[in-house]
Design a protein around this nucleic acid. Sequence first.
DNA 1: CCACAGGACGGCT
DNA 2: AGCCGTCCTGTG
Length: 289
Amino acid sequence: MAVDITYKNGVLVLKRLGNFDIESILECGQCFRWERNKKNDYTGIVGKNVVRIAQTGDSVEFIGCDLNDFNDFWFSYFDLGTDYEAIIKELSANDEIMKTAAGFAPGIRILKQPLFETLVSFIISANNSIPNIKRIITSLSSMYGKRIIFENNEYFSFPEPTALANADVKDIALSKAGYRSQYIRKTAAAFMTDPLTVTMLKDMAYANAKKKLMEYTGVGSKVADCTLLFSGAFTNAFPVDVWVKRVMEELYLKEDTPIKKISDYAINKFGNLGGYAQQYLFFYARSNL
DNA sequence: CCACAGGACGGCT
DNA sequence: AGCCGTCCTGTG
């Protein structure tokens, strides 16, 4: 069952990689900077790292990636050190709903994304649709990021806090971020003077880390939970958006329930696996409800 | 043209 | 403390 890793001519190949479905991982709403070239073939930029990933069955190719890139960055980004089979087993025990939801997309993984990038991306996500969020981030990156050429195409790294902090709100608004433009600039400025790291968040209790994030302008409960979960800080974070609210009411609670109550229910029910449960439920809801 | 989808904020009870 | 109008953009 062990994963087999080989590297030749700029292509790193993982064989027998379980619980890894590139489409589920990249289309489940946790990341915004991957473009689909064709089915099961995506190119993405994370921080300053660009890579193309092509999957056939349980064999996954990382193109334009050497062993160092993989060990230093992508292994952690794709959360390859975590046993998802065990997580699904635990969530599914005595819970037919989770069994169905996780069984629907067992190849989902929760990415560990750079903190500032994740925070700003989810500030942009507030009251917004996924295609629009992607457009805004692409636009901001081309204005304030660094240009990188990969496979003869042009990519731009996510902007550094300084670049956004020093930008004019009017210029940020050219990205079509709308009223979120001032949130982006203010948060970047705060981040620049008082940088926050995932390590710092992990050293706090979950509730304190969430409070800390909610001090940034444009960050409410949902955006804070998304940032904690998708930066790899807390696996118990359970972001409740309209879809999760819908699926929780439909499958578990059977009645209209305030968001805060849904959070409490999930924390109590799923504990440290809440974040994984949320992703399975979210993906299931988007595809079936 | 209008209705609607998607969360945070701030002003109001 | 909770309720609700407003914010911006894209789509049907």
